[in-house]
Every structure is written in structure tokens, then in C-alpha cells.
Design a protein around this nucleic acid. Sequence first.
DNA 1: TTGCTAATTGAGAGCGCTCTCAACACTTTT
DNA 2: AAAAGTGTTGAGAGCGCTCTCAATTAGCAA
Lengths: 342, 342
Amino acid sequence: MCANLMQRLTLEKIGELAGVSRATVSRVINHHPNISSEVRERVERIIAETGYQPNQAARSLASNQSNVIGLVIPNVVQAVFTDPYYPRLTQGISAACNQLDYTLALFLFHSPEEEQFAVRRFSNNSLIDGLIITADNHINPFIPQLVKRNVPFVYIGRPETTESVTYIDVDHIGGSYIGTKHLIDLGFKRIAQLSTKHNTAGVDRDKGFRQAMAEVGYAVDEDYVVYGDFTERSGYEAMQHLIPLRPDAVFIQSDTMALGAMRALRDAGLSVPDDMAIVSFDDLPPALLTEPHLTTVRQPVHDVGMLAVETLIERCANPGQPPKHVVLPTELVIRGTCGAAN
Amino acid sequence: MCANLMQRLTLEKIGELAGVSRATVSRVINHHPNISSEVRERVERIIAETGYQPNQAARSLASNQSNVIGLVIPNVVQAVFTDPYYPRLTQGISAACNQLDYTLALFLFHSPEEEQFAVRRFSNNSLIDGLIITADNHINPFIPQLVKRNVPFVYIGRPETTESVTYIDVDHIGGSYIGTKHLIDLGFKRIAQLSTKHNTAGVDRDKGFRQAMAEVGYAVDEDYVVYGDFTERSGYEAMQHLIPLRPDAVFIQSDTMALGAMRALRDAGLSVPDDMAIVSFDDLPPALLTEPHLTTVRQPVHDVGMLAVETLIERCANPGQPPKHVVLPTELVIRGTCGAAN
DNA sequence: TTGCTAATTGAGAGCGCTCTCAACACTTTT
DNA sequence: AAAAGTGTTGAGAGCGCTCTCAATTAGCAA
């Protein structure tokens, strides 16, 4: 029997074939209790034989839930290409969706107009049960609008106003604290930082760096703090500014920027860690692309994604709940660039 | 009026407010002809004032079309992280979806079981109108199953069996031909290749290289052909094998591998293009990360994504159509690594 | 005026599912 | 043996939309 000639299967038809009512088939599919095992098996057999798949649209309409969640990534143009962070995050989110039998809708926005247009579609629409938002920087009007329109969402990172927003973040402050502390403990004195001002993660990492420095009474010379924007190129350029000052170590806020920084050092004929030690942040694949490999603060990007999905689904099920804030710990991964191996 | 207290808006209610029937409101929303402009304006005003959004689930159920398309990326684990190709492609696809008012569902699979499980959900499901498939390598059982289950799809790349499959591909053969030809024209004699066997793109690029070489009567010494797997690391290692043979130029099948290859050359104290000229393939962001920048064959990844969406939507509208095959042209981008600038 | 066509609108029947409610068949309790 | 409880099933009313079909009105020629 050819698929295209085959008439569409419905609950009704499956019921007919199994000699039960539509309602009973529905119960079997949704794993309701109180079905005689005899009937359950019969129905399940028919379903398996026919390859029946319930119609999602009808399900959504009747139950007012779609089992689809959206992932929103604004300002892609910059971010997605320069850093392996987003692919990694997306993978974690996707894995959790597959596991929990949810479908992932991806929304990449390239302009404020697209954002504006999309936000309307998210409400009262029944396409999307909820959203995972990754807004890499500062205030965007998205969040308040979602709150107003009552769209359940989980924010990845630390939002401007933490009240009333559920978010999953990584302990950036603690992470850069242990990264910097590691350099201090190794005896380095003139410790620079390759920082960024582009998002709250950057701001927090800066804070952790200063905390560690302050704790041991090292003054932070602002000339020793240079800024990039998470790209390889910006790391390269920032390091070029740093080289003449001859710090003996530098804490770099991302692996990708560390890649660029090491390129600059190599071009200047300097060796890592002998001429300058490096600790960076992320532990994404690029960390293994340098020689020696990067000593870096691992952030659990994959776990953040998984957790975001789980949290979102939970919130969709219990809309009344107070906002939840999760901050995941980081971990120092010691490799070659800090000189600790010597 | 608070959003959560606000009663759900329906066509019926909008009709009531505008003093027309549900059917008329539906007509206005779907831009049917034969609506008096007076009624149209009145209805549109009410819709704008109330912020009404049609319920997608009900729409899908009634019209049997969801305006959602799926993007399938198997074997993510490897591919997504090592190459900026997928993010770029995804961006193109997303842009087209936004423009055409479609929603993009992302399916990343990590295991054959997940694939198998998902393929069932795609059929007779009404969640997905059609699929864009990126299968980076060889035969997978996915395609025949989709054909059998009558799910409209567009394949990105060149599938094993081109019959009955609509695909969008890039002219890999022609691209590597012009890339190689460029090296030949510049007078290089001992031209090596950093190739891959991982997918049809690799096989095709290999073919183009050999075509160009054969055309001018250069024999291809198989020692001069080394293989990688599209990763930076594999480019590094492959180049290490090549260096002792001292070719004067090398055609490299991807920018990412070229990145690794240039790292190997630098570590060996060799300079590009003086000691070895390089032409690569892709023209993705990494092409500008090397010094000098990569001379490379640009493939229109973004356009492939856009075109895939348009083609898919067209096929969904006309299911009877014969399969369509599109092969997009490439373009040589001359920068520093080929030595042509000197 | 009458008759005809064309434009505009409404009524109503689904789309395939979920979920409540009632019915029925058994047990168990009194 | 009657009453009450428990487990299992079916009937039927929606969910909010689309789309066909018929009704109404308007426009125009005869």
C-alpha cells in the first residue's frame, strides 16, 4: 500500500481497527492509568502496525499546548560566527528537547524590526509553549514585552532586572576569580586582563578578576586591562597593546580571544607560558587548538542548555511559580598556557 | 487591561467587535480578494487595536499546513563545532524563514536512534510542512524513508541517488577547478592537495583539482595528496606530512583546514606564500583570520540556505512537481596566500 | 421594471484531538 | 442482599480556524 494513497490515519480509525472508541485510543497514547492491559496491548499493536502518528495541530488545539519551545538568538550576525558558544549551547538545548520529546524552534533575528515582529507572534499563538532567550547584551525591549504578554521564558545569562525573570547563568565572577587566583598562586606579579564590556558575562568576569587581585593586595593598573569583543581578531589587537607593557601573565575572558592573543604573541616572537602565562575562560573546542593548550575556566555550556529546557518546561506546567535563578559553577582546567605543568 | 486577565481573542470575538462574521475576519487576515475596503479597514483596525494573533494550531488543523519547516542536522557532534559552515547555513535558512513568515524547527541528532525516532514524527504529523536535510556524509536511511513517507524535503549537498530527490548544491568541482587553475596559472609546478573523503563535497572538490591538473598535463603524485576531515587539527597534521615533500603550492579543501595547515607551516618556520602558496575553499570567516588572508574559493552558503527554503516552500505548494536540482556557482577570492598580489 | 451577472457576506460543516461526564461492570463493605 | 466504591469505557462537546455553499446586495443591460 503506497503511502500517498493510504488514507490518513486518525484516532477514530485506530479505534475502529482495535474495536474501541477514540477516547480509549487517546488514553493509551497519553499513558493514562486505568486502561485494561488487554485493551492497551491491542491498541498499541495496531498503532505500531499502522505507524500511526497523532496529529500535532489537533493535539495543540485541544490541549492548548504544543510541545514546542523556541530558542531566541538576537544580533546573530556578530555572535554566532565568532564564537563556538552558541552552537554548543544549541546542542545542549536540542539534546534536552529530543530527550523530553519537545520540538525546538529556532529564532535568529538580524534586526530590531524582526524582533519586534516576532514578539507578537509568540503570544496567544499556541505555536510555542515557551522561550529560551539568549540576549547577549544590555537592555532589550524583548524581555518586558514577554513578561507583559505572559509568555513563559527562561533567560540564559544574567538579565538587567533579575526580579520576575527566571534565568540560568554561570558563575562568571567565581570562575574568573579562580582563574586569576591560579595565576597569583603561581607567583605572577604583573597580571593583566583581556576584558570585555559587551555583556553581563564580561562585566562579571571583570569583577572576579578584580576580586582576586584585591584579595592579595595587588593593585589593578588600568593600563593592564585591555578590552575586546569576544572575537579572535579583537584578542589579537588587544594583545598587541599589552605586549609593550610586558605583563608576566594575563587573564583572558574567552578562549576565542585567547586564540587571537596567542597569535599576537607568536607574531611578536614571545613564547607562552615562558614570556607570558595565560588563563582564559570557556573551555570550548578552541582551547585545544593552541600550542600549548589553554589553561581555562570551564563553563558548563551544554548543561546550561539542558537545564534551560528542563526549567522552561517546568515553568510551562506551573505558570504560577515564582521566578527561579540558577547559577552553575565553573571549574579550572589546567593545561599548558599557565606554566603550572613545569 | 492586564494580559493575563484579558480573555483569549478569537476570530469570533474580533468579528463581534467589528460587526462582521468570523468568516469575514478570516478573509481579511488571509488577504482574500472581494472584501469591501470599508469592512477590511474596520477589521484591520480592530485587529491592530486588540493585538489579536490567530491561533496557529487551529489554523494548521483546519488548513492542513503549519508554516513550519524543519532543518535536520545529523551527526552534529563532529560537524557543528569544527566548522562555521553550519551556523552560516542556518543563518541563511533562518533569514529566509523570517522573510517568508515561516517558523524554523531545528533537529539536531546525536545518534541513529534519535534519527529513527524522529523520522516517524515527521510524517502525517502536521507539525512540519517539509524538511531541509543536511546529511554530511554517505548513505543514510533517512532519505528513502522520507521519500516513502511522502514528506517533502530539500537536500543540501549532492545525495547518493539524485533521482527523485530535490537538492541544492554548490559547484564543488568547478570551484576547486578554478582554485587549482589559479595556482597553475601563477606558475607553480609542484602542487599538492589537502583533500578529504568525508562527503560528496570532498569527493567533488578532489575531482575538480585533478581535472585542472590533468588539463595542463601535470601528473598528480599521490604522495602530494593528503587527507583531513575538515577540522583545524586535521589540517595541521596533514600539512606536517606534506612539508618534507616541499610542494610549492597546495590546494586545501576548506578554510578551517587551511587554518591548521598555516599553523603547521608557521611552526615549521615556513612562510606563506613565499615558501608555499595556498588556495582554499569556503570563504567563511576564518579566511580572514590568517596572515596573510586566505585566497579561497567562495561558496555561497548563505544563498544555499535561502534557496533551500524557497525551493522547499514551493515544493510543499506543488507536491506533484518533478525533483529539482540546483547547483550554485563559486567564485575565486584572491587574497594573500596565493602570492598573486606580489 | 425585470433579469442577469458579479461582488460581498454569513452559516455551517468539518479538521483530529482532549477531556469531562455518565454508564457500566465488578468488587468490597455492611 | 443492598449499598457503596473502584476500574474501565464510550458519548459528546468543544478547541479556533478554513472553506464551501448559499444568500444577499449591487450594478448594469435589456
